[in-house]
Design a binder for these strands. Sequence first.
DNA 1: CTGTTAGCGCGTTCAT
DNA 2: ATGAACGCGCTAACAG
Lengths: 337, 337
Amino acid sequence: MPSTIVDVANLAGVSPSTVSHVVNGTRFVSEGTKERVLEAIEATSYMPDALARSIRRDRSESVGLIVSDAAQSIFAEMILGVEEEARARGLVLLLANSGADPAREMESVRTFRKRRVEGLLVAEVAHRPNEIAQYLKSKGIPLVLLDRVSEPAYDQVGVGTQEPMRSLVGHVLELGHTRIALIAGDTSIPTLRDRAHHFQAAMREAGFPPEAIGVVDSVPTQADAANAVAKLMSTAGSTRPTALVSASLNMTVGTLTAIRRLGLRVPADVSVVSFDKLPYDDLFETSLTGLVQPAFEIGRQAMKLLVRRLQDPNADPATVALTPRLVVGGSSAPPAE
Amino acid sequence: MPSTIVDVANLAGVSPSTVSHVVNGTRFVSEGTKERVLEAIEATSYMPDALARSIRRDRSESVGLIVSDAAQSIFAEMILGVEEEARARGLVLLLANSGADPAREMESVRTFRKRRVEGLLVAEVAHRPNEIAQYLKSKGIPLVLLDRVSEPAYDQVGVGTQEPMRSLVGHVLELGHTRIALIAGDTSIPTLRDRAHHFQAAMREAGFPPEAIGVVDSVPTQADAANAVAKLMSTAGSTRPTALVSASLNMTVGTLTAIRRLGLRVPADVSVVSFDKLPYDDLFETSLTGLVQPAFEIGRQAMKLLVRRLQDPNADPATVALTPRLVVGGSSAPPAE
DNA sequence: CTGTTAGCGCGTTCAT
DNA sequence: ATGAACGCGCTAACAG
């Protein structure tokens, strides 16, 4: 039912190729015929079929984005950044949510490939990119990692770790805390391993002996983190931390949940600072001290990186490390004692 | 570089049509040749080109989703619901963010049409659907509205208004409040008009005379709401509300912002209840009393509605009104006096 | 300055 | 039980 380029050509009394050239401005067409063509386009409300065009030009003008959890605010903002930049480049965005399931992720990769996406952006917390990366490389489809800075062999965009973690720890130290623990999550995940590493480094720089640096590892979920924090905060007074540093949004949620359940107060009983701020936390009396991720910008930059690679497939892999911003809220204060 | 159906056919020593039939199971192929074809597919790592297939079958197996702000948690969850259901149906999801800009929205509609999406889902706060709806109807492309129940002529999914608002107001009344104001937002928006309407109805039912029912209208943005609330709460003691009902997430943000700035305390100085809960608010000491939207389910149901319409284009328009859940938090308490 | 022709990769009659 | 041939809608040589 939609009108085709032939309909327009017939109506205008010209050949399809002329219509094509008018539409795409790809060769000179005399004013007279051009006008007749444009009228015919108007009359038939013709619109080029992007699929047919893609197949003919061998350019789909689409990119795929795979995230592990589109509902998490940080990913949601990244999606926004990707979308905006994609739109600006005239690229259509295909979205898939993997739920952090490698099988679903791979399935989406294949689906996207079938649709001939020109490139892929992947924001996946869990595993290393090798599996899909090799597949894509073998097919010649560019890949950009989001929320990552730990894989120098790939194009990737994320936030730096060292400086931000140093400023976060520095803030806690300046308040006078000496018993500080990191709720690290699962350090088999590269991003979290990095954060734990630089937490320890920052603590050592401040003169803490290694054995005095508390790191709660192997707590992949919010519930695990909550349990661990509950245990940690139930210990006797002299070993109980006075400040908790949480390494990710999930860890922050788990940490705060445990603290609420224990009936402890922030920051009176314990200070909490976070590598990832919660959305809207500053509306509450005890707003969070933590780092605000430039998530939108991560998305934008990643899309830019992808465009760059599409234009120059042989460019060296680039890592863009953005800087999160430390916001001091009410959740951190000097220790009580 | 990707291998085509012809490559496979040559390698297997059969015709392209046989390969096609093997791939699609669309007619009988003898065991022997079928096996050879499958081997050839494996060997050449052949994958059907979804674009070529779409153009040939006249079915793109894709749908478009347009939201006004993908970063807002409620929309983010809807996206998730849509994606999950789309994936389950083998449909690919094209996403666009309109930023509540009708021009951008229309542009996305056209882009999606060019890509031959089979249907469109639109979650747009601002205006009525007529403009794009007529366009799509004329093109025979199904449309489903998300986060709406106010347009019975369309397929739409959202939350009901009457019962939820009644329970919200009921909760405030039970606490003993008598000076209650609704922060309505912009009631030229159908959804918000509905909410204001049922707020007033619930108040009247409770015996309040119309002139005693406070509704703050014409405050489209968070900042507007904050200003209005600031003004409202600065009035003398006997007219100042003891409870605020906010009609949307934006209004809640504005309301809480103003309250913080004024140095007032929730719920000691004023109770706040919200039609939309904030994400993660229950991690804080003063968690919010309000309605939790089943946003994921809205997305899923909307996608199901779209599939239904694709199968039966002449079905009557359906409205699915889901029920939000009232969660009582610490932001509401009996009035102080 | 414009038209004719030949595919892009695939699904699908129509034959045999 | 399989193949040959055509066309989906479009762009890009290659004429002229």
